[in-house]
């Protein structure tokens, strides 16, 4: 009998080893952010991204994560940990994304996710920042001779499920007295394939994903993107409520990328600017004056590291959505002084 007990105890030990206790780290510091402390202690940022959506987050030919959302993960890791590569990417389907963030498995969620009223109020999550302004657009076959969404009465459109899109279409149809049929797919590649085969007349998603979808078609020139944008889809980062300092870090990391573009600081001229600049704005941004990094609970070199590792917002946008990539005009994502919405709160 005692042998059985011993075996049982052995099993328990093995199990508890498997479980691994990640203790609560609540070290005392001037800025109390449990997430920041946990990330620093772990030496790694856990970042929830899309399982694979061209432009936002995908694995490139060498198996490395890449994309606009991934760039924000890398920037936060560079700011917090000093190394953009210290990120653990967790690929998430739209079904599980919020719960995984709620359970504390990831530190931030940046997964082409729309920031909405209900999500803000109901999920116990904070919407840290918007890194991509877009809206629901449609792509249809050219040979249908359709110029506007209103003409799509009776058409079948491929959609990815678990998003805000299904409801947007239903609402649009109700408002405009058209009936647009939807076909709900679990994953983008399956929806692309169905659109390609002609199962649906078109594909709908946020502007960035539609551009990605178009380039994924066998003959991209056979498809036309309709001019209407039927909804607002501000895509951005989510963090857990109750940890405002961490939310600030994510927010200001994105702002740092935008500010760098506004100041004409890019990955290539960064070191030169830092050595030579006399402009107070640039000096403040690069941490040569003021204590902005410390106010976030980081060091003053944080913004330098962000630009050094991923570049400014314009560079990042061009890399994934520019003419050489998916070819999506910047539109709303231009800087505020170029007629867009990417605006930085005053760096004071």
């Amino acid at each position: 009998m005692s042998g059985v007990i011993l075996k049982f105890l052995g099993c328990c030990t093995v199990l508890s080893c498997l479980v691994g206790f990640a203790g609560e780290a609540r070290a005392q510091s001037t800025i109390k952010s449990p997430t920041l402390e946990a990330v620093k202690q772990r030496g790694q940022l856990n970042c929830g991204v899309d399982t694979g959506m061209p432009g936002y987050a995908f694995q490139n030919s060498s198996g490395q994560w890449d994309g606009l959302d991934v760039a924000l993960c890398r920037a936060v890791a560079a700011a917090v940990l000093g190394d953009p590569d210290k990120v653990k990417y967790v690929g998430l389907t739209s079904k599980v994304r919020f719960t995984v963030l709620q359970s504390g498995e990831i530190d931030m969620l940046i997964r082409d996710t729309t920031l909405t009223f209900t999500r803000n109020t109901q999920l116990g999550l904070n919407e840290a920042v918007i890194n991509f302004y877009t809206g629901e657009t449609f792509m249809v076959r050219k040979n249908l001779n359709v110029a506007h969404v209103k003409e799509l009465d009776g058409a079948t459109i491929c959609v990815i499920t678990g998003t805000t899109l299904e409801r947007d279409i239903a609402d649009y149809g109700r408002a405009n007295h058209v009936k647009i049929n939807t076909l709900l797919f679990d994953r983008p590649e399956e929806a692309f394939a169905a659109a390609n085969a002609g199962r649906c007349d078109g594909y709908t998603d946020d502007g960035g994903s539609v551009a990605a979808a178009r380039s994924g078609m066998q003959h991209p020139d056979d498809w036309v993107i309709l001019p209407e944008v039927i909804s607002r889809e501000p895509l951005g980062a989510f963090v857990r409520q109750g940890d405002e300092p961490w939310s600030n870090i994510v927010k200001w990391t994105h702002y740092a990328m935008v500010e760098a573009e506004a100041l004409d600081i890019s990955q290539s001229n960064l070191d030169e600017v830092k050595k030579t600049t006399t402009e107070p704005e640039a000096r403040k941004f690069l941490g040569l004056e003021g204590d902005f990094g410390k106010m976030l609970g980081l060091d003053n070199d944080w913004s330098y590291r962000i630009v050094k590792s991923v570049g400014n917002y314009g560079e990042v946008y061009d890399r994934y959505f520019g003419p050489k990539a998916l070819g999506l005009p910047r539109g709303l994502n231009e800087l505020w002084n170029h007629g867009g919405l990417q605006y930085v709160l005053a760096w004071q």
């Binding site: 079904k95 919020f98 678990g162 409801r167 709900l184 797919f185 679990d186 169905a194």
Partner: peptide, 20 residues
């Protein structure tokens, strides 16, 4: 996986996401 509106697709997909 192929957009057939069955339980996992509609209920554990769209409904789950919209209702949270």
């Amino acid at each position: 996986a192929i957009a057939y509106p069955e339980i996992f697709e509609i209920f554990a997909g769209t409904v789950l996401n919209q209702s949270g």
